[in-house]
């Protein structure tokens, strides 16, 4: 019997993990990535919740024992996907033609473009940054300073920016931003012990094991203040600091607070690749634009198209644990499909 080929689209953690497992199971694997290198968002991340483990460790483990038999194609954009009997024929912008017996879509997510939440002032006020920017600062070991070069005395984290917000067009909860905010707040406090740090939230969704513990630690050890209220808009003061207006809903009073730095916790949206590959293959999108598996409980990897499978956060917001587990489980499903 000829060795079957699986094309894995997307080289983030899900794509990498799945490729490895597929190769170990004896399949020929072609891993296609639109970016310059594998690893996806993991490349921009410094440390992971809930245990502040370096993201590099995960990347390293993904690369470790990476089978040489896997054909990795980076900077590759798929322009068309056709079918010839049971085989898929993928054409790329670089005019390569790839044939495969099954497709695994691991196209992942992108973060919400905070410029669209104009009232929060990202891209307008210098001291408004996103959680991705802050993580980048951490990773680059850049000192956390305001645009005027001062050490911020007060920092506010705004939860749910572009998530749970119909006005941004996204009703869904991005799941990981709550715990990310707490993690980043704690890390910031470690760097700036004098700073007063606030989290402005609607609900705190500490769903994973260890998350609530981190939340508790952030209160107990780091004195992070949690204010239940959602930001309406930010104003810029003369000195470049920001005046945030929220309602402190628990005291039922309007709250004005001056913040030297405002961090927007940007949410998960389906990546451009998820949208593009989904339309190329004619897959079903859920109302939030993520790809819809055939049955979320019982056939979480199957799609309406035979031989096309899904794994990772192209299906919706996921933390890393879930993403990797989902990738491994997809491999089992593909093996079942290709050996029958």
């Amino acid at each position: 019997m000829m060795t079957k080929t699986v094309a894995v689209i997307g080289g983030g953690p899900a794509g990498m993990e799945a490729s490895k497992e597929l190769a170990f199971n004896g399949f020929q694997v072609v891993l296609l990535e639109s970016g310059a290198r594998l690893g996806g968002h993991m490349n921009q991340w410094d440390r992971l919740f809930p245990n502040k483990r370096p993201a590099g460790e995960i990347l390293e483990s993904l690369y470790r024992n990476f089978p040489g038999s896997i054909t990795v194609m980076t900077e590759t954009n798929i322009t068309s996907i056709g079918r010839n009997a049971d085989r898929f024929i993928l054409r790329t912008a670089g005019r390569d033609v790839i044939e495969a017996d099954a497709l695994l879509v691991c196209t992942g997510f992108r973060v919400f473009d905070a410029i669209l939440k104009e009232e929060y002032g990202y891209g307008i006020y210098d001291n408004v940054i996103t959680s991705v920017d802050l993580e980048q600062w951490f990773k680059e070991k850049r000192p956390v300073l305001t645009s005027h070069g001062r050490v911020p005395a007060t920092v506010g984290f705004i939860h749910c920016v572009g998530s749970r917000d119909e006005k941004s067009g996204n009703l869904h909860c991005s799941k990981v931003c709550c715990v990310t905010a707490v993690k980043q707040a704690v890390e910031l406090k470690e760097k700036l012990p004098e700073a007063r740090i606030f989290c402005f939230y609607m609900d705190l969704r500490m769903f994973g094991l260890g998350y609530e513990e981190l939340y508790k630690e952030s209160q107990e050890k780091y004195r992070i203040q949690f204010i239940r209220g959602r930001l309406s808009e930010a104003f810029e003061n003369m000195d470049g600091s920001l005046m945030a207006k929220v309602e402190d809903t628990l005291t039922a009073k309007p709250l004005r607070i001056n913040l030297d730095l405002l961090v927007l916790m940007v949410g998960f949206l389906p990546s451009d690749g998820t949208a593009a590959i989904g339309s190329l293959l004619g897959l079903t999108f859920n109302p939030n634009g993520f790809l819809q598996p055939r049955d979320g409980h019982l056939q979480p990897h199957d799609t309406e198209q035979q031989g096309v499978f899904l794994a990772g956060s192209c299906k919706g917001p996921k933390n890393l644990e879930e993403t990797l587990a989902d990738a491994r489980s997809a491999v089992l499903r593909i093996r079942q499909y290709l050996t029958n």
């Binding site: 609607m202 239940r228 959602r230 309602e247």
Partner: peptide, 19 residues
Amino acid sequence: ISCGTCASGCTAAQFTDFS
């Protein structure tokens, strides 16, 4: 969902107790 965004940006709430 009682998030309070309406009250925080409220034009009237600048001057009076209204939420």
